[in-house]
Design a protein around this nucleic acid. Structure first.
Length: 491
RNA sequence: GGGGCUGUAGCUCAGUGGUAGAGCAUCUGCCUUUUAAGCAGAGGGUCGAUGGUUCGAUCCCAUCCAGCCUCACCA
């Protein structure tokens, strides 16, 4: 670092600006590598990138520069650059960003390279970049020595992670492709992408603890949204018939492999449809997105082959419990359910209602089996205060979740649009809250008022974009698919 | 929150109750088609932090900080 500061000074003394304004590029590294043909003769290019390797040999230097597409070797020769410029070359370091103009050629060892006619320093790097050495083995595989792998450093200094680990770069490119594929799937069907408030005076749409902030001018607390749901439903009331939003939600809860305090959610609401329709739609969309980013209906995640061939399995929650535990819970009251949970060795908190008991059994004994894409349907009513009562199964709502690789990917229901029923459900949540359930939903009076004007029957869907990305990129942790995951501050 | 593991040079890691090492990176010299370039030489560390035990601690003990794994909680 100190030495590089000195180089900075020496560059200034030589009249070289270490941070110039502009450099015009005519080709990327991969353009050059893909298009070069020996028989075509000299090809003039202008490329720019960061120096990642350097081999100095007296009056000549070989280096690799990396741009956003690939690495390309450049050949810097004193005779061609002139001794004056070559003195500047001597002051270059790994990590510096340079622009090179020259001709494409193939070296004696066969590597396509750029023979520099001129070189421009574009940005001096003042810190040493931990670039690992690498080579190709006989089979042409990339072998990296002492790679930059420390997870904490990778997450805290993501820029270096992206620079040094091409696989990381690929994951984030794929994340963008996934979002783009979702968006174009929805746009092609005429749904309207909208933006709703992140700062909300009343938080709702999910059961979770919020982040609280304060608005100075209004002198009121505001909450970072935990879900978009209630605002998107207001848009259905307002006459839009298909709306979606892709945005961040915030939940003030624990962090682990599957949870980050801020995460990205897609929510979609479609008028006049129900959850059965939404199930078909979700299946079609997931298949389309996976095909567009992975080019196949079969992917391998953690050594397991997953098939996205339709139709995905569909099974009601109770049937899934019966299948994987051998315990039928049909017709059981709360005491019966508790007894069943005990037999299955599932711990249930003291004051949980019957729905929570079912959920506990499901989480503990069923989820682990849901590897291939599976729709779980028909959830207990008290777990789903915004979902419509099932048309034929008392005590349940018309809701499904999609599980893949033991992970919940999507959640959807026939949306509750009866304002009287909705008020009852909020009251029930208030009772749960009074009993100490911190996550029970708060009553949103403004939403209820809007609902009283009439909301069309509708189906709603939420998809966790981070988890979907984990799945489709085979990433084991949510931090591998969030560019800047939440970290405890360094001290 | 419970349990396990980790923290030593810029990076990846070894090591020891007696003041610290390797490879790469860095610096100096030589080298005009090299590619984990090579050859010769050199510098570089509060051994995560604070206390304790000890004549002496990077090493043993305690606490703290940070991270990873796992369980719990949680969508």
């Amino acid at each position: 670092m100190r030495r590089r500061r000195e180089e900075y000074q020496r560059l200034l003394e030589r009249g070289v600006n270490p941070y110039p304004y502009r450099f015009d590029v005519t080709a990327t590294a991969s353009d050059i590598l893909d298009r070069f043909r020996d028989e075509d003769g000299p090809w003039e290019v202008s490329v720019a990138g960061r120096i990642m390797t350097m081999r100095r040999m007296g009056k000549a230097t070989f280096a690799h520069i990396q741009d956003h597409t690939a690495r390309i070797q450049i050949y810097l020769k004193s005779d061609d650059l002139g001794t004056e410029v070559y003195e500047t070359v001597r002051l270059l370091d790994i990590g510096d960003i340079v622009g090179v103009e020259g001709t494409v050629f193939r070296t004696r060892t066969g590597e396509i390279s750029v023979h520099a006619r001129s070189l421009t320093l574009l940005a001096k790097s003042l810190r040493p970049l931990p670039v690992p050495k690498e080579k190709r083995d006989e089979a042409g595989n990339r072998v990296v020595y002492d790679p930059f792998t420390d997870k904490e450093l990778r997450y805290r200094k993501r820029a270096l992670d992206l620079l040094l680990n091409p696989d990381v770069r690929r994951v984030f490119i794929k994340r963008t492709e996934i979002v783009r594929a979702l968006r174009s799937f929805l746009d092609a069907r005429g749904y309207l992408e909208v933006e709703t408030p992140i700062l909300q005076p009343v938080y709702g749409g999910a059961t979770a603890r919020p982040f609280v902030t304060h608005h100075n001018a209004l002198d009121i607390p505001l909450y970072l949204r935990i879900a978009d749901e209630l605002y998107l439903k207001r848009l259905l009331i307002g006459g839009f018939e298909g709306v979606y939003e892709i945005g961040k939600d915030f939940r003030n809860e624990g962090m682990d492999r599957n949870h980050n305090p801020e995460f990205t959610m897609l929510e979609l609401y479609v008028a006049y449809k129900d959850y059965a329709w939404m199930m078909e739609f979700t299946e079609e969309m997931i298949i389309a997105v996976n095909r567009s980013v992975n080019g196949s209906d079969t992917i391998t995640v953690g050594g397991t082959e997953l098939s996205f061939a339709p139709p995905f399995r569909r099974i009601p929650m109770r049937a899934a419990i019966a299948e994987y535990t051998g315990e039928s819970i049909d017709g059981l009251d709360e005491d019966g359910l508790r007894a069943a949970a005990r037999r299955l060795g599932v711990d249930v908190e003291g004051q949980a209602g019957p729905g929570r008991v079912i959920d506990a059994i499901f989480s503990a004994r069923v989820e682990e089996h849901l590897v291939q894409p599976t729709f779980i349907t028909d959830y207990p009513i008290e777990l789903s205060p915004l979902a419509k009562r099932h048309r034929s199964l008392p005590g349940t709502v018309e809701r499904f979740e999609l599980y893949v690789h033991r992970m919940e990917i999507a959640n959807a229901f026939s949306e509750l649009n009866d304002p009287l029923d909705q008020r009852e459900r909020f009251l029930e949540q208030a009772r749960l809250r009074a009993r100490g359930d911190e996550e029970a939903m708060t009553t949103d009076e403004d939403f209820l008022e809007m609902l009283e004007y009439g909301m069309p029957p509708a189906a709603g869907l939420g998809i966790g974009i981070d988890r979907l990305t984990m799945l489709l990129t085979g990433s084991p942790s949510i931090r591998d698919v969030i560019l800047f995951p939440t970290m405890r501050p360094e001290r």
